[in-house]
């Protein structure tokens, strides 16, 4: 790939435009270019973390209401997701450095809450007759839901790391490059989200062919993203990028499809107070868009890594 790097610099790839500051082609990126890449990536990761937290907040509010909040612990994700959401909003706007430590703490809390929640949900499944069975995977507390909070926390955590990294240093987390961690993490989260959609759409017997979208395209995007995270970084990822864009589109369209699903339940939207609870969950599909956003941030960082290493210009990075 690196062989034609020079050709590419002569005819810049079209994958999503260029960062203005970086448009003067250079072998090593300038400080402001790095600044910009870090800033944008942190921004997108914050946004992704926020979107997922919002989805967790709305979804757990509805689902735990459905479960009558019979256990007080069922309020936890609401509280944590709200705090996480606030932290991401703050992170998106606050000047670098301000509130960093506090937000980091909150993101760690989100990860911990997600982990404990997963424990609760596993226990709920095991305690039911049949244990680990399709019945319980379908209808007991969903395994994947609390891990969304973990993903949100991790995305926020990475965003904080990137923000805290001086432009002349390469961003690293626990000794690993942030770009790779973000790529692999987003890929894994996409696979997980897809797996949950697969489980629940299987429960719905794939009665509408559109239900196959979220279980086919995102895994492909995840595969490409994971591949990108494992391989030496290159200057541009047009195919991966396109797949992530499509994944985001599916996520947004999914909300529309789920709204249609609510309409198909008895009484449709007129009976929203029941059908919002029992119909397909409207807040969950945008998680795909959030993860696609995180994936794009990862690609941007990877491309930046490549340009730092002097392989390709940093301009082939999406905005």
């Amino acid at each position: 790939m690196t062989k034609d790097a020079d050709n590419r610099s002569a005819a810049p790839p079209i994958s999503g435009g260029a960062i203005p500051e970086a448009s003067n082609i250079a072998r090593a990126p300038s400080r402001p270019a790095t600044d910009r890449v870090y800033e944008r990536s942190a921004h997108d990761l914050h946004a992704a973390a926020g979107l997922i937290a919002l989805s967790v907040l709305l979804d757990s509010a509805v689902e735990h209401y459905r479960g009558s909040y019979h256990n007080k612990a069922m309020f936890t994700p609401l509280v944590t997701a709200t705090i996480t959401l606030t932290a991401t909003a703050h992170g998106l706007r606050a000047p670098a450095g301000l509130g960093h430590a506090g937000r980091r703490g909150i993101f760690v809390l989100a990860v911990a809450t997600g982990a404990v929640g997963t424990g609760f949900h596993v226990y709920d499944i095991l305690a039911k007759p049949g244990g680990i069975s399709w019945q319980n995977l379908f209808y007991a507390a969903p395994l994947g839901a609390p891990s969304a909070l973990i993903v949100s926390g991790l995305a926020g955590f990475l965003a904080e790391h990137i923000r805290a990294t001086p432009p002349d240093e390469s961003a690293r987390v626990f000794g690993h490059s942030v770009s790779r961690s973000a790529a692999l993490g987003s890929a894994l989260a996409l696979v997980g989200t897809s797996a949950e959609a697969a489980l629940l759409h299987f429960r719905g017997a794939f009665q509408n062919p559109a239900m196959f979208f979220p279980v086919t395209l995102p895994p492909v995007a995840a595969g490409l993203l994971g591949f990108a995270g494992l391989r030496p970084a290159v200057g541009a990822y047009p195919v991966t990028q396109a797949c992530l864009t499509a994944t985001a589109a599916i996520g947004l369209a999914g909300t529309g499809f789920h709204a249609y699903g609510v309409a198909r339940a008895m009484g449709g939207w007129r009976n929203w107070h029941q059908n919002l609870l029992d119909g397909p969950p409207i807040p969950t599909p945008p998680s795909f868009a959030a993860l696609a956003l995180a994936g794009r941030a990862a690609l941007r960082l990877l491309a930046h890594d490549a340009s730092r290493a002097g392989h390709t210009p940093a301009r082939a990075v999406p905005p």
């Binding site: 429960r203 009665q207 198909r264 339940a265 029941q274 029992d278």
Partner: peptide
């Protein structure tokens, strides 16, 4: 799950 004109069981 929905099927044609049948909504899912309530």
């Amino acid at each position: 799950a929905p099927r044609g004109k049948s909504p899912p069981c309530v």
